[in-house]
Design a protein around this nucleic acid. Structure first.
Lengths: 146, 146
DNA sequence: AGGTAATAGTTGTATTTGTAACTAACAAGG
DNA sequence: CCTTGTTAGTTACAAATACAACTATTACCT
């Protein structure tokens, strides 16, 4: 048991996931970085706002499983670049609503279409069934608790 | 095309991979961190030495697709903790050979067996066939160039 | 041999991230 | 109302990372 020769750490799922995630992120990272000077967390916040429309930082945190400090800083930078605007909620003044500006929406739309093309390239070679199963499995792993 | 309503960024493969990788790494990260004060890069270097035996930093870099500065610093810390020893190659004095110490091997062996248990928990719910297909797909994604 | 390029590995500095502590605003119970 | 607790979001400081520049050594080429 202790020295199970049948377990090869090279097949360790967290390791494989990290390798694949890094490789897959690499190219697209350059897209939003070079085109818009954005960091990964900024792209994530941007695309959540693009999909869902108006959200608060906490909403984004819950959806994206991102820590609030990451979001806080991403929002700050996106606001500086005028990709989003912040509106304080007058009913509950702790809360801030975030909305993409016109410019932010254009950026989102451009990145989304680039992302779609890139995604297509990534699953090239997989059947549609395999690709869907892969996504489903990844979602299950991400949702896992405990 | 530009605003393809059929492409949902939430299904974007790099995003799903990152979410899954982060979730999957989280727990195991605490194991090597709490038990041995190790960082992820150190664990990676350690396990490569555990699998392959004596290697150089460049060898590890090639296998693990890690940048040489990461390896350099990981090796430094592993050497400080006496988990590995460095031996200069007398034929080519630029090169340094890395070997796990007895202690390093014990740590590796402990972490490996914990990793195996954790891996089993992660693929719980998947058939053996599905789990193998998943690993294969991840390896292919990691190997992808261009 | 002598000069140029390549390779192994380290170090310096600027960014980024993680953790914890913080401010501000609201909620709830007495 | 007033204390205690909770939630939204920010900030400060330590730790980690990326990238480029560096040293030392070997290889290549003429």
């Amino acid at each position: 048991m202790r020295d199970d020769p049948d377990f090869d750490v090279r097949m360790f799922l967290p390791y494989l996931l990290n390798q694949a995630a890094e490789a897959a992120s690499l190219e697209f990272q350059n897209v939003y970085k070079d085109r818009y000077g954005m960091l990964r967390n900024e792209w994530r916040v941007l695309f959540h706002l693009g999909i869902y429309g108006r959200m608060t930082a906490s909403d984004i945190g819950a959806r994206a499983q991102m820590h609030k400090t990451k979001i806080s800083r991403a929002v700050q930078r996106l606001a500086e670049r005028r990709y989003l605007v912040r509106t304080r909620d007058e009913a509950d003044r702790r809360v801030e609503h975030l909305d993409l500006t016109k410019m932010g929406q254009k950026v989102y739309s451009d990145l989304r279409s680039t992302a779609r093309d890139y995604d297509t390239a990534l699953v090239e070679g997989l059947s549609e069934e395999d690709a869907n199963r892969l996504r489903t499995q990844l979602i299950a792993l991400a949702a896992r608790r405990g």
